[in-house]
Design a protein around this nucleic acid. Structure first.
Length: 116
RNA sequence: CCAGAGAGUUGGAUGACUGCCCUGUGCAAGUGGGGAGGAAAGUCCGGGCUCCAUGGAAACACGGUGCCGGAUAACGUCCGGCGAAGGCGACUUCAGGGAAAGUGCCGCAGAAAAUAUACCGCCCGGCAUAGCUCUUGCGAAGCUGGGUAAGGGUGAAAUGGUGCGGUAAGAGCGCACCGCGACUUUGGUAACAGAGUUGGCAUGGAAAACCCCACCGGGAGCAAGGCCAAAUAGGGAAGGCACGUGUUAGAUCACAGGGUUUGUUUCCAAUCCCGCUUUCCGGGUCGGCUGCAUAAAGCGUCAGGUAACUGCCGUUUAAGAUGAAUGGUCAUCCCGUCGCAAGACGGACAGAACCCGGCUUAUAGACUCUCUGGUUUU
């Protein structure tokens, strides 16, 4: 998907994370996180935006905004090694201010105990 | 200027920082170039391309199209014309072949909904009563036998319409005009239109119930298909057995037999394939590459054509992702709304997925051209 993060693709990965991972709900998105075992040290990101959010234009835009937030917040953090994170977009994501969404994301990372 | 009709264009602009996809260049760091739409949408038609081993023909079935002529690779599309309906008009709309080939249908209402028929009414005859006249008749109401489609009422629709004649009352029964059919003729490539003669009314509606006629159509789709490739099964080679006839060293070759060829059946041509078993070799799911963007291409001049469109020449090369790039933040300007102002808010519908030609649907605002009907002035 991108050079700076590896993406989650297989639907089995999404199912495993939603079953076993920790969950944190915001009005704009739902954050799921799960620590992975093994040698691979990279961080992986998955995005899900359902049809309830809007038409194809709105869904694409929502995914881009979520991906940009992840890029700006996560790329430098060493704590995120071996973590899989899934973001599920919700309907209000198309209207919320970008900087506020960014704060929501950092807050979510703290709540799930990933960062201090 | 107001109201309206038709056709078309556009779909915010520029920049900064920081990212993504493709690509050129470079050992590398880096750096250059390109990056959503008119509908990319719905997936409704028509093609290209690919596979189903190949080509041709016929019948049946199924599906589609349906005034005429043209355009096109093709179309259910487009252009021009005809007819019908609507509008003062510009113009718009139309599932616009056949109902005298056949079957079936026409709710409710109404007498009757299709071999016509008689509910009320109108008219005539018979019987017969009240009454009148007066000894012979007239006879309302009533009963009964007929005639009649003028009038009433019902309905979406009632067996041509209006008028005059005619008649007991009526009726295309007769006549005039209109409509309709047939024939002749003129114009037109044709649909069709005009004129004339004639018939004397025959042909109610609906084909979007079946059907008939003409024409068209094989199926599935880029998750097509091809290549590289960890595992398993099918596959190939060699041997043995089996096998109609001939032949040969030999399933070697020929003929015969059987089988496949995508809606079904049949025929023709050509080509392809052929039972069982042992050993050895190989083998293609996840993944990657390809298919994959130079094409019925865009733009422009000129020429032909009423037009759709075509031809010549010149010129341009224009996204290529695959859990799917084309973003985020900000500044200035533009447009709209609100506001005295500073400023605030908003800028439609909507996201390429093999590629083209259409159709349909969604679309804030802005702009251009042509035409029509008014109004005012000259």
């Amino acid at each position: 998907m991108c050079a700076y993060v590896n993406s989650l693709k297989a639907s089995s990965d999404f199912q495993r994370i939603s079953r076993l991972g920790k969950k944190c709900v915001f009005p704009v998105f739902i954050m799921l996180a799960l620590k992975r075992d093994g040698e691979d040290s990279s961080f992986r990101l998955g995005l899900t935006v359902s049809r309830k959010v809007g038409n194809a234009v709105v869904r694409n835009r929502t995914k881009r905004r979520l991906r940009e937030i992840a890029r700006q917040c996560l790329i430098t953090k060493e704590e995120l090694r071996n973590f899989d994170i899934v973001l599920i977009g919700r309907a209000s994501a198309k209207e919320r201010d970008f900087s506020l969404m960014k704060q929501d994301f950092l807050h979510g990372l703290k709540k799930l105990g990933i960062t201090a």
